[in-house]
């Protein structure tokens, strides 16, 4: 049977659903243990944040795709939440092994971490649904094409929806790939492409936290001298 772009996209969607079949859109018992081990239990904040971002995502999804599609947006969001909790658990297991600690209070109470991780999970879900346009040239060309209405949802759409700094999103990508070994080659390349776009342009916008860090680094005298923002 010849492989068509549509069939390839359908296969990717099916694979994603199978991989997430055994996961829940609620924190697993292992994750709940990590939450309880924190100096400040982040459970409530995490649940509240997911609910708020669910509303924002669904509304923006409906605006982009069509008002009748709000339910579809919620389904995509739920898949993203399943992946978010799955990857979070895997990341924490790796960190526990690496650092020999079980209290991740600072990390798990960091809003930028959670929003970035959820955004990355949703980017994987959204990009899976536009798989055919990824194969036709990735972010640069695929998202500019009018072959699918859902290409409007391509990266960096999710950053705008969640009001997220590209610099923070960038920080989760490598750990995300490490923590999710079942990630398909195309998706890994897509995330790598997102990295390049951030590195080449998005992280250098005027409001990027990168400039404060460069300034701080210069004041502390560590590392190389930073270039001024205009450069």
């Amino acid at each position: 049977v010849p492989q068509t772009p549509i069939r390839a996209a359908m296969n990717s969607i099916q694979q994603l659903r199978v991989e997430l079949n055994s996961t829940s859109d609620q924190p697993s018992s292992n994750l709940q243990v990590y939450f309880k081990n924190c100096t400040v239990d982040p459970s409530e904040e995490i649940t509240k944040r997911v609910e708020e971002l669910s509303q924002v995502f669904s509304q923006r999804f409906a605006q982009a795709v069509g008002q009748r599609c709000e339910g579809l947006g919620r389904k995509r969001f739920n898949l993203g939440v399943q992946l978010y909790y799955k990857v979070m658990e895997s990341m924490l297991k790796s960190e526990e092994k690496r650092l020999s600690v079980q209290n991740f209070s600072k990390l798990l109470n960091n809003a930028a971490f959670h929003t970035s991780l959820l955004a990355c999970a949703l980017e994987v879900v959204l990009a899976t649904y536009v798989g055919n346009s990824l194969k036709n040239g990735g972010f640069g060309r695929g998202c500019g094409a009018s072959d699918s209405i859902e290409t409007d949802l391509c990266f960096p759409w999710i950053l705008d929806v969640f009001q997220l700094h590209a610099f923070d999103f960038y920080k989760v990508i490598e750990s995300f790939i490490k923590a999710e070994p079942t990630l398909k080659h195309d998706m890994m390349k897509h995330l790598e492409h997102c990295e390049h776009v951030i590195m080449e342009s998005l992280a250098w916008r005027g409001d990027s936290p990168l400039f404060d860090l460069l300034k701080q680094s210069r004041e502390e005298g560590t590392g190389e001298q930073a270039e001024p923002p205009a450069t």
């Binding site: 990341m91 960190e95 600690v101 600072k106 990390l107 971490f113 920080k171 080659h185 890994m188």
Partner: peptide, 21 residues
């Protein structure tokens, strides 16, 4: 995921990237 260029060093992880202990 062998084609991906991993840049983090052994002593770095998500905790360090979000300024945590």
């Amino acid at each position: 995921n062998q084609d991906y260029h991993f840049g983090l060093k052994e002593h770095e992880g998500i905790s360090e990237l979000f300024d945590c202990d």
